[in-house]
Structure formats: C-alpha cells, structure tokens
C-alpha cells in the first residue's frame, strides 16, 4: 500500500494542480485570469506527460558510453513542441482579450454578458 502511494502520489498532485487550473478557468469572470488558469492547466498536463517518461536511475537521454539506462525521450520531444505552440496560442488568446476590451470596454465576462443581453 505504501509503495503504491509513493509511486502514484506525484500523479495525484499533478491532477490536483490541473484541477486548480480548470477551476480558475471556469469560476473566474476576468478573461485574463481565465487564460492564466488555462495556461496552468496546460502546463500541468505537460508535466504529467513528461513524468510518464521518467525512469528510476536513468539519466538524461543524451548518449554517452558511461551510462546504459536512459529516460524516455519520446514524451520530452512531444511536450517540448507543445510548450512553444502553447505560448503562441495563449498569445492569440491575449490578442482576442485586447480586441474584446476595445469593443466592450471591459474584460469581465459578467459585464460583457450583461451588455449583450441589453441589445
């Protein structure tokens, strides 16, 4: 039982961080804060993926004669590109927020909804 907990507790903590991000995204009305929550959620998913590639006693996947056991390079490759793509798409989200601010003069979702209902 103890081994099971020690082997899985880091997954559970990552899931907890992920859910904090999702909760920020869903419960907060400020659009910039929503995007920060989305970024936290995304980073937690990336962290989960990379942690699947870890091998105990393994080393960084750069070949050298001194080592025989390496961590899995595949999750690292996939997540490396995901981070850069993630920041580019988050920037697109921020651009949309700036345009919404110009159009509605507010970045609060509740106020924007109210304005839409008035029309």
């Amino acid at each position: 039982m103890m081994d099971f907990v020690l082997g899985h507790i880091n997954y559970w903590l990552i899931v907890a961080v992920m859910m904090v991000g999702l909760y920020t995204l869903m419960s907060r009305s400020n659009l910039i804060k929503k995007l920060a929550g989305l970024a936290i959620f995304q980073t937690a998913v990336i962290l989960f993926y990379v942690s699947l590639g870890k091998v105990t006693g393994g080393t960084v996947p750069i070949m050298d004669e001194k080592y025989t056991l390496y961590s899995n390079p595949l999750p690292q490759v996939l997540m490396l590109t995901a981070i850069v793509v993630g920041v580019a798409t988050t920037a697109l989200g921020f651009a949309l927020v700036i345009r919404i601010k110009e159009a509605y003069d507010s970045v609060e979702e509740s106020e924007i909804n109210k304005m839409d209902e008035q029309d």
Binding site: I62, L80, V84, V87
Partner: peptide
Amino acid sequence: DYSPGGGFQAGV
C-alpha cells in the same frame, strides 16, 4: 546535437 538544446529552445 551534443548537449540539451535545439531550435525551439534557442528561438525562445
């Protein structure tokens, strides 16, 4: 090619 790094990292 020989140490951690590559195009994505260098670019950012």
